[in-house]
Amino acid sequence: MSMLEVRDLNVYYGGIHALKGISLDVEEGQIVSIIGSNGAGKSSMMNTISGIVKRQSGEILFRGEKLPSQANKIVKQGICQVPEGRLIFANLTTYENLILGAYLRKDKAGIERDLKRVYEIFPRLEERKNQIAGTLSGGEQQMLAMGRGIMSAPELIMLDEPSLGLAPLLVNTIFETIKEIKAMGKTILLVEQNALKALSVADNAYVLEQGRITMSGPGKQLLKDPTIAEAYLGHAK
């Protein structure tokens, strides 16, 4: 049994059929990447799993159980979304943002331990813990969003476009961090436009085109696929 099973998911926005019968599996301990162009439905899929967007039909099972319908209850199941555009709380301090990540947790010792861990991974965040998050740079805000995700002690962490709008050097840092999060024993569902990076780190990957999954397989294998190379990696034929 996979950790996360998505079966025949259909989502409509108004009249637009955004997700057309999507099915996918995420195995425990893996990094699963979803690549696709703008508007392919990558974020819709993630928002549907996290409960922000309502689905019309289909099933989402987490460890074999149906997920609750409210987004705040899904967090409690151990699924955490680091949303596109980061959505950090720009009016609060870095520290307060991180503590909000642990909003549902009661284990004080565990929270302290994870906070230390986040500061180890992102020393910048510790330096700026009392700074208002809105004044952080784009890269620091992305680190904060990921750190906040880690603070919820999720079993499955869903990263939506973590490299979007970041300088190349920072993109590398973010992908190193993704590997570190995997090493912490977390399962990762990654949505990315940077197909090369996303496929390189992925154990498994899916290609999403116009609301449908058109291809899937191990990341390394998709990386070598000529149609993918042409469409997403910018290689000439």
């Binding site: 922000i52 409690k76 949303p83 709380f89 720009a90 307060e96 503590i99 909003y103 906040r148 919820s152």
Partner: peptide, 24 residues
């Protein structure tokens, strides 16, 4: 307080608050 922090978070962005598990 914790609920105060949740109020301040939701006042900035309710959707992000929900993603933290806050019951809006």
């Amino acid at each position: 307080t914790k609920i105060g922090l949740a109020i301040r978070a939701c006042s900035y962005n309710e959707k992000a608050g929900t993603l933290m598990g806050i019951n809006s």
